[in-house]
Amino acid sequence: MASDTSKLENRQTLKKLVFIAILMFGFGYALVPLYKKICEVTGVYSLTKPDEVVNTQVDESRSIVLEFDANSRNETGWEIIPLENRKTVHPGELVQVTFKLTNPTATTFEAQAIPSYGPKEAGQYVKKLECFCFTQQKINANETRDFPVVLVIDPELPKDVTTVTLSYTMFEIEVKSTTENRQASLRERQS
């Protein structure tokens, strides 16, 4: 039979260990903001706010090839494309590029664009001053819209990186008028 003192000790050890377990469960969740923070600091993605540009010195001695790409993730049938595939720019130079969204359907929807970069570590040096990815975009039926993106390549970009890809994946978040009116129009045509 365990004595009373050892029972007390056991209970204290129990408390400590349960505390560690709960702490680690919390830590699992803490990894989420932590991961995002790390990603933001390293610039892998910063979605919602414009970057601040500190150094506006244009470095004429270097040229960077900027590639643009867009992916449309939707079931509706709209598409977003960059109007230019690539541009040669100097670090520090203000760059403007346009992405064009075409919605040929009778559907209204909201979409969110997520930027990503290749190579990944170049992300922190692409400073976006204006971007349609900062907010959700509401697109009307049969609308075509041009989204300007304004950015600066930070002159701190490592010397061995000479090609940077800026890619957007645009996700359909909420679809307003959907299946019903599409089916209705189909029925009309069939009859």
Binding site: F27, Y29, L31, L47, I114, T169
Partner: peptide, 30 residues
């Protein structure tokens, strides 16, 4: 004691992503 709760967290996030509209692992929701 240190590792299992983290797994529990990961699968719980999967569960809420599946059923309760969270977007821990879905790029569309950030």
């Amino acid at each position: 004691i240190a590792a299992m709760p983290v797994l529990a967290g990961a699968v719980t996030m999967t569960l809420t992503d599946r059923h309760f509209g969270t977007h821990f692992f879905n790029a569309a929701g950030g």
